[in-house]
Design a protein around this nucleic acid. Structure first.
Length: 286
DNA sequence: GACGATGTTGGCAC
DNA sequence: GGTGCCAACATCGT
């Protein structure tokens, strides 16, 4: 759920409230979501709130010492201000004024305190809104991978998730299984512009609320109403009217228009659908 | 009640 | 470097 536009929305909400607040005490109700010793963040003052990829980053300071609080929201994580703790509140940050809650139903998210940014974090790829068209096209076409898994790869580009990859590929009329190195430069440039446009529009609508996503103030996003293919299986393509299809691409549910998004003939492509819903050699014994 | 799907990443095998 | 498959977890729809 929380992809770049949702995380950006949360960060903007926090950025107007958290700077200069001091972290007095941290209560951990579910250790599973914590990496390392998060209590070390107690006593620090929040200097700045930032986003990097799908991470929320709080830059901390305490008498010349610096630190960072990293939050990845996984699938169902929420950072809330001015809210009451609930059954899914996993961590509570008691501030000198108010509190910050970390709620997470499925507990796939992670919170971590670090004095220096960890290596995993530094391996993140470029920000889609900062990389620039030429650079994107050059790097994109240098990869021999299916476009969908490539765009989901956070080391290649950081911040895109299942929703926005499907939406951007639709707008650029690229088949999710097409191979990146077979996409012509003009089409790759179109993809870049589609990604930027979709992300900007989604941010303007405060993200997509498919299941439980809400901003730091508890408000839902509205971009889900503007999705053209994501979770619209069987509904007519807004461009040509063909029924939107759902297939599996590297284990991820993938939505596209079979008429608008074709793999150009002669261009490389990955093996056909492989059943998608059938498949015999799966369903292993745990 | 059982099953499959859900926006996340990471680890393993090949 | 790239893909497939599984794992973590809880909820919801069929």
């Amino acid at each position: 759920m929380p992809e770049l536009p949702e995380v950006e929305t949360i960060v903007r909400g926090l950025a107007s409230r958290l700077p200069n607040r001091r972290i007095e005490r941290i209560e951990v109700f579910q250790p599973r979501v914590i990496i390392g010793d998060i209590q070390r963040a107690e006593g620090f003052t929040i200097a700045q709130v930032r986003r990097r990829g799908k991470f929320v980053l709080l830059d901390l300071e305490r008498g010349g010492r610096r630190g960072h609080l990293l939050a990845h929201l996984g699938m169902t994580g929420q950072l809330r201000l001015a809210a009451e703790p609930g059954p899914y509140t996993r961590v509570l940050f008691q501030l000198d004024k108010g509190a910050l809650l970390y709620n997470d139903v499925r507990q796939f998210g992670r919170l971590e305190f670090a004095e220096r940014l960890p290596a995993r974090f530094k391996r993140l790829g470029s920000e889609p809104l900062e990389i620039g068209e030429e650079e994107f096209v050059r790097r994109f076409r240098a990869r021999r991978a299916m476009v969908k898994p490539l765009l989901l790869n956070q080391a290649f580009l950081s911040g895109l998730g299942n929703i926005y990859v499907d939406e951007a590929l639709f707008r650029a009329r690229i088949h999710p299984r097409a191979l990146a190195n077979r996409i012509r430069p003009g089409r790759a440039a179109k993809l870049y512009r589609a990604i930027v446009r979709v992300l900007r529009e989604a941010i303007a609508h405060r993200g997509s609320s498919i299941s439980n996503y809400v901003g730091s103030d508890g408000r839902r996003g509205a971009f889900q109403h503007l999705h053209k293919v994501y979770r619209r299986t069987g509904l007519p393509c807004p461009v040509c009217g063909a029924a939107i299809r759902r297939i599996l691409v590297s284990q991820r549910g993938t939505h596209f228009c079979p008429r608008c998004q074709k793999i150009r003939s002669g261009a490389g492509r990955a093996p056909e659908p492989i059943g998608g819903t059938l498949g015999s050699a799966r369903r292993g014994a745990r």
